[in-house]
């Protein structure tokens, strides 16, 4: 008996919430399109004149973040990791936090695997970039967009 009443009520609510959620998504997906100047400058400082190619670097971040304070991130770079051919550094940069640097790791072939996990802060919806330096001096780049739904929209819930 309560079931059908519940169903109706839930159905009504779905409509209400759907419109609320729609508004929110509009607000928080302002495209993080053009790479801001600061991040480009940092990338240039890191890479100099070396070639930068797309690929090999994979960023794993949740596409939709529950709280920008602590965002789990795994970065994996494809590489044989031999003495002759390995990753020497992985830089993670972003375009909208107060400054572009996030974290940099330095490694060599003895790591066996060019991958690390950490947790980062993301102040806003934006693009995160992973830049890997190889032992031959070349660079590879991978990126991912992250939507930060401001969990503090109801600041205390």
């Amino acid at each position: 008996m309560t079931t059908s009443r519940d169903l109706t009520r839930r159905a009504a609510l779905t409509g209400a919430a759907a419109s609320g959620a729609g508004l929110l998504v509009l607000r928080s997906t302002q495209p993080a399109s053009a790479t801001p100047e600061a991040m480009r400058a940092v990338m240039r400082a890191i890479t100099g004149d070396a070639p930068v190619r797309k690929g090999r670097v994979q960023l794993d971040l949740p596409p939709l973040v529950e709280n920008g304070n602590t965002v789990p991130m795994t970065v994996t770079v494809e590489s044989p990791m031999t003495a002759l051919d390995h990753v020497t550094a992985i830089h993670v940069l972003n375009e909208k936090n107060p400054q572009p640097y996030v974290v940099t790791v330095h490694l060599d072939h003895r790591a066996g695997k060019a991958a690390f996990s950490t947790r980062i802060k993301l102040g806003d919806t934006q693009r995160v970039v992973g830049l890997a330096k190889m032992s031959d001096g070349s660079f590879w780049i991978g990126e991912q967009d992250v939507i930060v739904t401001i969990a503090s929209c109801l600041e205390n819930f």
């Binding site: 309560t2 009443r5 519940d6 609510l13 209400a16 919430a17 609320g20 929209c153 109801l154």
Partner: peptide
């Protein structure tokens, strides 16, 4: 906040 809460919850509590 008020608008959001109202949009989500402005239905009598029954359950």
């Amino acid at each position: 906040l008020r608008a959001l809460v109202m949009a989500t919850l402005a239905v009598p509590a029954l359950a």
